[in-house]
Amino acid sequence: MWKYTARRIVEMIPILIVISILTFLFIHLIPGDPARLVAGKDATIEDVENVRHELGLDKPILKQYVDYMKNLMTGELGTSLTTGLPVIDMFKTRFMPSLHLTFLSMLWATLIGLMIGVFSAINKNKWPDYFGMVTAVSGISIPGFWLGLLLIQLFSVQLGLFPTGGLDGFSSYILPSLTLGAGIMSMIARFTRSSMLETLQADFIRTGRAKGLKEHSVIVTHALRNSLISVVTVAGLQFGFLLGGSVVVETVFSFPGMGRLLIDSIAFRDYPVIQSALLLFAFEFILVNLIVDVLYTVLNPKIQLDS
């Protein structure tokens, strides 16, 4: 497994280089003159030229890319056009809340989703199955903004249990994570159910029962382990999306995460922030994919040896 992981990490390097080229080119693909954009509408031609020189945009493009990469290595991501703060500092305050929210949402969504999926599968076409699947369909169908508002109305306004928004300690994470995780839980529940139903038909399940194993070890040791592969795929993809921050949920709960930062930056054409956010999201996705692939080899020994 370690050899495989190491190889995969090495394979990440060319992908990251391609991504860095794309994000570097981003600033050059913006319609119009980037130096003028940065300098502002009312700037004189001299001001614009000064900005161009400051940004290094007057240098040859290859030199610009080398400088860009050098800055990237030292964590220098440029300065925000709206706040004047270094982009890296803005990310520092915005990234961790998003990361925590993502972890919390994924954690409960995966646990509950797996449980609902397994119970539905072993009680196929009985009431626990119907109940589980109705819950799952509701979770997928209810839009996030509406669920968020309902939760605020009930738990914050009526019961006063949690804050309506903002970020002030652990309690601020509860309602956003419920909203964010509902859809993911539903998806995981449905995937677990169908995957379990398929696995329970397998010959080796019959072998397990013929050995006289207790039903729970047949379900957990033999069936669930084999069903997890498709579940990991879904969970991994969702995890990657969540890391990018959720615009809707962060807006509903006025949550200071990456999603809102990105939306605000787009609204104000804050190109250095957008550029760096793109790079970060791409990197996160690659990392999550790597983790998923390594998990595959843990779950299915055949994959590791065939590769």
């Binding site: 397998a202 010959d203 080796f204 019959r206 072998t207 397990g208 013929a210 033999h222 382990r225």
Partner: peptide, 14 residues
């Protein structure tokens, strides 16, 4: 009991 299909009668991940 032993079964007809040895290829699928053992759990592939254990």
């Amino acid at each position: 009991m032993i079964f007809q299909e040895p290829m699928t009668s053992l759990n592939p991940v254990l």
